[in-house]
Amino acid sequence: MWDTLIIHPFTNVLLWIYSLLVDIPGAFGWAIILFTILIRAITWPLNAQQLKGAQAMQEMQNDKEWQAIQKKYAKDKEKLAQEQMRVYKEKGINPFGSCLPTLIQFPIIIGLYQSIIRALATAPLGMLQLARSVRSEIFGIPFLNAAALIPLNSRFLWMDLAVPEGIPLPFEVSFLPYGFPTLAIIVAITTYIQSKLTMPATANPGDQSAAMGKTMSIYMPLLLGYFALTFASGLSVYFITSNLLGIFQYAVTGRANWRNLLPGGDKQKSTK
């Protein structure tokens, strides 16, 4: 099921893009970048919804009725939750609407990672799985000459996309077996910038949404940075491209909060 719905389509699209670029040096890296752009374009409405949802949740923090029920039911968590849900419903807000697109990213990340590994087929069993995945034709129309494409060239810039990235160091560091992890650092920085840009400024010190956003802006770069450090560098190329496209999306839709990148920039001036 997972293979049919995710891995096979992802692998075939990746190979198809690769087949268009095969004569360009680093074709598979460019194929991952183009594939990420494609995924970002498809999920653009979802990301827009996420931004909208986050903004609505933020505005809710300053809503008088919301603040009143927080105060009134401060000691009755169950009642508070019921009242919160009622207010959400009345205002047409889906409390999970802002995190749904983030959750959708996970199967994409896992699917993409498995597709990259499958496409690069560094071992016989992987090659056999790849042979099973590729479609030479779709509905009778020739699609891929996979036999001519395989094996794929895994080199991209200075990297081998099938293994974690690292620039060799003149000395050995036990926890950095692949060398200096340039890509993992870029992944962490771009993830941090992206999450900071989407955090609305807040004047409310008890704002749970802002507190969680702050936690996430630290947690997510570390998590994705760890993934980039540990897994095939093809995944890092996806992360960086995706983050840059995310920043671009926030910028063009006018939602990027650039002041958040400055120290103390996430604090809104009190209107009182």
Partner: peptide, 26 residues
Amino acid sequence: LFMLVSILAAVLLSGCAGQAGFSNSW
């Protein structure tokens, strides 16, 4: 929920990391 999915993602990615190695064969 986010934490749970993150952990699941890490586990799933780790699970397929073996495919990046070379021992995965007959």
